[in-house]
């Protein structure tokens, strides 16, 4: 008993004051990309050629956050002259076209479907479907339940059955072998239901792009309401998306 109390005291209170107080991520974290529209086009082309994810459109000078895995290669090549990754973890968008960006994202709160806020603003139960990613997205969704993020204090929970859920959170590039299970889980979720795509794989196929075994984007299979980019998205990105979109 004494040992339990001693540990409790040593551990202290760890819950993040976010969203009341802003959170600062470390300097090497690569968040929302910003494009310099005045960069020379051949520099943009060099970045596009080096991008492992084919995420850069050099002619239009945009970056596709759905494909991007936030490796920072383009920033390094252009020495920050074309792309810089900021420490801003607010990356999520409600329409796929907004993933292709120069760095300014639409205000997610205003783009949220108002009836979702009304329905789910005080209580949101989500069912997670892991569909062939690498388990990093799942791991960083799971940490939302740890004391630091403590998702439950916002009335948001991950539940065990789609029957108890208001929506599904899908990670991974939806392999051929997971399609049926995904559709069945979706069908089992009562309407109105939300579909949230988390991570580069669910948004575009991610690093597995080009494999015949996977789907290049969840939106090809289901109507997606919220897109959360990252490889994997930082837990703060997930938390920001859920709070802004539904609260």
């Amino acid at each position: 008993m004494l040992n339990i109390l001693k540990n409790r005291f040593e551990q202290g209170c760890r819950t993040s004051p976010y969203p009341k107080t802003p959170v600062q991520l470390p300097p090497r974290y690569r968040g929302r990309p910003e494009i310099n529209p005045n960069a020379p086009v051949d520099l943009a082309r060099r970045c596009a050629a080096a991008c492992p994810q084919d995420a850069i459109d050099a002619e239009n000078k945009t970056i596709d956050m759905g494909r991007c895995v936030f490796c920072g290669t383009c920033q390094r090549i252009s020495d920050g002259q074309f792309v810089t990754f900021t420490q801003d973890f607010a990356l999520s968008v409600s329409e796929k076209k907004h993933l292709i960006t120069r760095g300014t994202l639409p205000d997610l709160a205003r783009h949220a479907r108002q009836h979702f806020k009304k329905l789910f603003g005080r209580s949101l139960q989500l069912r997670q479907v892991s569909a062939a990613g690498c388990n990093a997205c799942e791991a960083d969704l799971n940490v939302l339940a740890t004391p630091f993020f403590d998702l439950a204090r916002f009335g948001i929970n991950f539940v065990a059955s789609p029957r108890h859920a208001d929506g599904i959170v899908v990670t991974g590039p939806v392999s051929r072998n997971m399609k049926t299970a995904l559709f069945q889980t979706y069908e089992a979720t009562p309407e109105p239901r939300v579909v949230i795509a988390v991570g580069s794989c669910a948004l575009s196929g991610g690093p597995f792009r080009g494999s015949p075994e996977i789907t290049e984007g969840l939106d090809k299979l289901l109507p997606v309401d919220l897109y959360i980019p990252g490889c994997p998205p930082h837990p703060m990105t997930n938390l920001h998306a859920l709070l802004t979109f539904f609260k």
Binding site: P52, A132, R176, F208, G210, E213, I214
Partner: peptide
Amino acid sequence: LGYQHRGVEPLLLQAAPNR
């Protein structure tokens, strides 16, 4: 198992070295 099969090994053959 097998639900998560993404074809990693063939993909590693086809993909450009930087991928």
